[in-house]
Deep mutational scan, measured.
Amino acid sequence: SEFQINEQVLASWSDSRFYPAKVTAVNKDGTYTVKFYDGVVQTVKHIHVKA
């Protein structure tokens, strides 16, 4: 599913667990740039983002 900029989502971290994050960019290659609550910004594949 498509997510929008500033949408609150759950994004997987390197430990494969999902954490609350905010979408900061929707990228043309189908990835999302997300910002976790601790301030870390990461680009993740769409399969690693869920509502």
Rank of each mutant, 00 (worst) to 15 (best):
D15W: 05
A51L: 11
V40W: 11
K50M: 13
D38W: 15
I47S: 14
T43G: 03
Y32N: 00
K35S: 08
S14M: 13
Q4I: 07
V9C: 06
N27H: 11
A51R: 13
W13R: 15
V26R: 06
L10M: 11
K50N: 07
Y32L: 08
R17E: 10
W13D: 05
E7H: 05
Y19K: 09
V40D: 08
F18M: 08
Y19V: 08
K50G: 05
E2G: 14
Y37L: 10
L10R: 02
Q4Y: 09
H46Q: 13
L10C: 15
H46K: 15
H48T: 07
Q42Y: 11
A25E: 06
Q8E: 15
Y37C: 14
S14H: 12
F18G: 01
F18I: 04
E2Y: 12
A21S: 01
A11N: 01
Y19H: 06
D38E: 05
V40F: 11
H46P: 15
Y37N: 10
S14W: 10
I5E: 06
T43P: 01
Q4A: 11
F3S: 02
N27F: 08
V23F: 02
D15L: 02
A11T: 03
D15C: 12
V34M: 01
V49F: 07
V41C: 07
Y32F: 08
N27P: 00
V23Y: 01
N6D: 12
A25L: 06
E2L: 14
K28P: 14
S14A: 11
N27D: 03
W13C: 12
K22T: 15
L10F: 11
F18R: 00
Y37V: 08
K28I: 10
H48S: 07
Q4M: 10
K45S: 15
A25Q: 09
D38Y: 09
H46E: 11
V26D: 03
V23Q: 00
V34F: 03
A25C: 08
P20R: 07
Y37E: 13
S12V: 13
K35T: 12
I5R: 04
L10G: 01
I5K: 05
V41Q: 06
K28H: 11
T33G: 02
Y32M: 04
Y37I: 10
G30T: 01
E2T: 12
A25T: 06
V9L: 02
F3Y: 09
V41T: 10
Q8T: 13
K35R: 12
P20A: 08
T24E: 10
K45V: 08
S12R: 15
A11H: 02
G30M: 05
V41S: 09
V9H: 02
I47Y: 11
V40A: 12
R17C: 14
W13S: 08
K28Y: 08
S12G: 09
S14Y: 09
F36S: 01
T24G: 01
T33V: 12
L10N: 03
A21L: 03
S1M: 14
V9Y: 03
D29H: 03
Q8I: 15
V9M: 03
T24N: 04
F36G: 01
V26L: 07
K35F: 07
H46Y: 11
K50E: 06
S1Q: 13
L10S: 04
V34Q: 00
S14R: 12
F18A: 01
D38N: 15
F3E: 03
T31H: 01
G30F: 06
V26W: 06
Y37W: 14
A11D: 00
A11R: 01
S1T: 12
G30I: 00
P20Y: 09
T24F: 07
Q4V: 08
P20N: 06
D38K: 07
A25F: 08
I47P: 09
A51E: 08
S1E: 11
A51Q: 11
H48E: 09
S12H: 10
H46F: 13
T31G: 02
T24A: 05
W13P: 05
F18W: 15
A25R: 09
A21E: 03
S16L: 08
T43M: 08
P20V: 09
G39Q: 02
Q8H: 14
K22I: 15
K50P: 06
V40Y: 09
K28G: 13
Q4H: 12
V49M: 12
I5G: 02
V41W: 06
T33A: 02
Q8Y: 15
A25W: 07
Q8M: 14
S16T: 10
K28T: 11
E7W: 08
V41F: 08
K28Q: 12
V26I: 13
E2K: 14
Y32R: 00
I5A: 04
Y19D: 00
R17F: 10
K35N: 05
D15F: 04
V41N: 05
K45E: 11
F3K: 01
A51D: 07
Y19M: 11
D29E: 04
K22M: 14
V49Q: 06
L10T: 04
F36C: 06
D29C: 04
D38C: 15
P20G: 05
F3W: 08
S16G: 15
K28R: 10
R17S: 08
F36Y: 04
K35E: 15
Y37R: 08
T31R: 01
V9N: 02
Q4F: 08
S16D: 12
N27Y: 06
E2V: 13
V9F: 03
L10Q: 05
D29F: 03
V34T: 00
S16M: 08
H48N: 14
A11F: 05
H46S: 15
V44H: 03
G39M: 05
S14I: 13
V34P: 00
G39W: 07
G30H: 03
H46A: 15
K22P: 01
Y37T: 08
Y32V: 09
P20I: 09
Q42A: 15
A25Y: 05
D29M: 02
D38I: 08
K22S: 09
A25K: 10
S12W: 14
K35P: 00
R17N: 11
E2A: 13
F3T: 03
N6C: 13
I5F: 05
Q42T: 12
D15E: 09
A25S: 10
H48Q: 14
H46I: 11
V40L: 11
E7Q: 14
V44C: 09
G39I: 05
T43V: 13
Q4P: 05
A21I: 05
V26G: 01
V23I: 15
E7V: 07
D15I: 04
D38M: 09
F3G: 03
K50T: 09
E2F: 13
V40Q: 14
V9Q: 02
E7D: 15
I5P: 05
A25I: 07
S12T: 10
N27Q: 03
A51N: 08
S16K: 10
K45Y: 11
A11G: 02
R17Q: 10
T33Q: 10
S12Y: 14
F3M: 02
N6T: 02
Y32C: 03
E2D: 10
A51G: 09
S16W: 07
E7G: 04
S1L: 13
R17M: 11
I5L: 11
V40E: 11
D38T: 14
N6L: 07
K28N: 11
V40R: 14
P20W: 08
I47W: 12
L10H: 05
K22C: 13
A11C: 11
Y32I: 11
K22N: 06
G39L: 05
G39D: 05
V49G: 06
V23C: 03
V23R: 00
V23D: 00
